Simulated assay, not measured.
Amino acid sequence: MASFEYNEHSQRVLFGQDSLSKLPSELARLGCSKPLILTTPTKTSYVDTITDLLYGQLAGSFNRVTMHTPTEVTEDALKHCKAVDADCLVSIGGGSAVGLGKALFVRTGLPHITVPTTYSGSEMTPIVGQTEKRVKTTHVDPKAIPAVVIYDVNLTLTLPAKISATSGLNAMAHAVEALYAQDGNPIASMFAIKGIQTLATSLPRIMRNVQDVDARSDALLGAWFCGKCLAGVGVSLHHKLCHVLGGTFNLPHAETHAIILPHALAYLAPSIPNEMKVLAENVPESEGNAVNGLNRLLSKLGITYSLKDLGLKEDDIDVAVTTLLQKPFWSPRPLEADLIHELLRRAWEGKPARMAE
């Protein structure tokens, strides 16, 4: 896929191979010269790469990015940001890095450039999350959408196949839920359908060859489309349940979304027949049933079906159901504790999702 640039009123996107090389010019456009680099402890090589690219002209780095954006980590990052007198933020990595960049933007107002290396789609959304005392909360701040997004396909070529698959399904969940959102609209549905199509076909190609540049490009584009869905409409059962599982039990973000995706859809299916038809038409091998299509996609990608494998304990299921139902939210199908419990038990046991009665 050819490289290109895309501009909206609040965001600029650079897409293509070697697009990270444009970071110096993007910093200059923003009038910034002292970026703070945000990444995870395992990705400090990104800091070295950016340091070389900027000839050492940066404020410093914060390498303690943590999933689910714990408030204590954000506060430590804020102190470091002020101590080094940074004039902008550059997050590089997965959704957790993007999330910390957003959280710091809200607290500082510093321009935020993000370089996604997975398929989370978070870079396209105004959603700011945090976890405090095992409770994950989110709020929407339209200004929190990063000012610049740099999609460098080359940075995804070393992303392991398993992480590629779970990250891609995490993004796909945004699109699936957008189709039946309470505030759904034709524009969000357009992005959703294209995102689902693109990821459902590109992810298996990546599993066959992680160095497939065309498949990687398609997956990044699909994640972009899916992120636009989450930016445009609200969330329901799928995301609310994943927030409980992630925030309360610290389950890994992308893997949890991947496992819950077909289960949440199966629960809601009786109340969204039109959306189920659209999904079945766009998820390969669905044979008229989108839940079966998603089950087959998980199997093809080699993703575990089991929350137990992620560390959830059997006794945690009751806690998760209670926590989920504490704060009412809109759902196309009324939430019944017994049925949600059954949904989670199947996911915990590693059984494929089954259509609700």
Rank of each mutant, 00 (worst) to 15 (best):
S236G: 14
K82H: 12
V210Y: 04
T138A: 06
W348I: 05
S33H: 10
Y46V: 02
K327A: 10
T114Q: 08
L310H: 11
A231C: 15
A83E: 15
V115Q: 07
L343F: 07
I37E: 06
S286P: 07
E8D: 05
G95Y: 01
Q197Y: 05
A97C: 12
M172I: 03
I113C: 04
M190R: 15
T201P: 03
A175R: 11
F4Y: 15
L203K: 14
A97W: 02
F191N: 15
A192Y: 11
D338V: 05
L89P: 10
C88E: 03
Q182N: 08
R64D: 13
E75V: 03
H112S: 02
T74G: 13
G184L: 04
N289W: 10
A353M: 12
H243Q: 15
S122V: 00
A28C: 09
A83D: 13
T74C: 14
T114Y: 05
V235E: 10
V65R: 15
H174Q: 11
E336W: 03
H239G: 14
P352R: 15
C88F: 04
T198N: 06
R208S: 12
P160A: 06
G222E: 05
I259W: 12
R29I: 02
G247I: 06
K34W: 04
H68M: 09
I187V: 11
L251T: 01
Q17C: 06
F191A: 14
G168Y: 08
D48M: 06
D141N: 04
M124C: 04
Y6M: 14
A231L: 06
